[in-house]
């Protein structure tokens, strides 16, 4: 019954987002950008496949980030704002199942969108591969429809799942979607620079206490930049399996911890 209830909540979240115009706007914009990269690629002789891969992956990540942040921050706070939470929590639905269901529902939405955009990117690269002359293919760092691209999109999906958990935490914590938005964007930006923050003391002359505090922040916030395999994949560089496994494990564990924190916060909340 537990799994069924979580699945019901998750499916409801997915259905809600599928019917949300915002999602279509973001997905449509992303597909347009991926298509536009073909034109850009034609302007740069011999580099077209690399540019399309680079741009395509960046668009998948960017569109995913937009979806995650804008849908994630309202995941719980929207239920509270429109007071639908009152009816829902009067049902035999434990609060932890509600949170887990909400999380999985948005992750499903994002994974489906990332998968759709990845398919679009692959179709485009296949088309270029089919059109290319053997001499052009020989100049490429990696095959056009390189399976390693899937690795990059998988890491993007894990990164987005982690960001979803962060957004969910703030959504469960704050009644204001705007505040959740500010916190989530703040954590994301800090997380992107987390590796730089960890090395703050090596690069900037500052009092020891400041260096330690900044480094600590760098270790605490999620290291979003660790999930970025775009450059390696686009240039056909090797990506060690251990790195992928460790980073994916880090993402999953961090996301699970954020969801648990969201459950703890939400379990204590009262609804007036």
């Amino acid at each position: 019954m537990t799994v069924r209830r979580i699945a019901l909540v998750a499916w409801h979240v997915f259905k809600e987002h599928v019917r949300d115009r915002v999602l279509y706007a973001i997905a449509g914009f992303a597909l347009l950008l991926v298509a536009a990269s073909i034109l850009l690629g034609q302007l740069t002789a011999g580099e077209d496949v690399k540019i399309i891969k680079d741009l395509g992956l960046a668009v998948i990540e960017g569109a995913g980030l937009l979806m995650t942040i804008f849908l994630g921050v309202g995941l719980v706070s929207r239920e509270i704002d429109r007071r639908s939470i009152i009816s829902l929590l009067a049902k035999p639905l434990p609060r932890w199942q509600f949170i887990v269901g909400k999380y999985l529902g948005l992750v499903l939405t994002i994974v489906v969108n990332v998968a759709a955009m990845t398919v679009a990117l692959f179709l485009m690269l296949k088309y270029l591969d089919w059109r290319a002359l053997p001499v052009e293919r020989a100049a490429w760092d990696a095959a056009a429809a390189d399976p390693h691209l899937l690795l990059a999109t998988l890491m993007i999906a894990i990164e987005l799942a982690l960001l979803t958990a962060v957004a969910l935490f703030f959504s469960a914590f704050s009644s204001s979607a705007l505040l959740s938005l500010a916190f989530t964007i703040g954590i994301y930006v800090t997380g992107v620079f987390s590796l730089d923050l960890r090395r703050f003391g090596d690069t900037v002359e500052a009092p020891s206490i400041v260096s330690h505090v900044v480094a600590a922040i760098g270790w605490i916030v999620p290291a979003f930049s660790a999930f970025d395999l775009k450059a390696q994949v686009v240039h056909g560089l090797p990506v060690p399996a251990s790195y992928v496994t460790l980073t994916a494990g880090y993402g999953v564990i961090y996301a699970a911890a954020a969801v648990v924190a969201a459950i703890l916060v939400f379990s204590r909340r009262e609804f007036t």
Partner: peptide, 28 residues
């Protein structure tokens, strides 16, 4: 237990049938 909150609001994107099926599902 059945509960009707004051000035209830539900999910605009659902039909009444979908909402009731969703809630009935939560009861098992």
């Amino acid at each position: 237990l059945g509960f009707l909150p004051e000035n209830p609001t539900f999910y605009d994107h659902l039909t009444a049938e979908e909402l009731l099926e969703y809630f009935a599902g939560l009861f098992g």
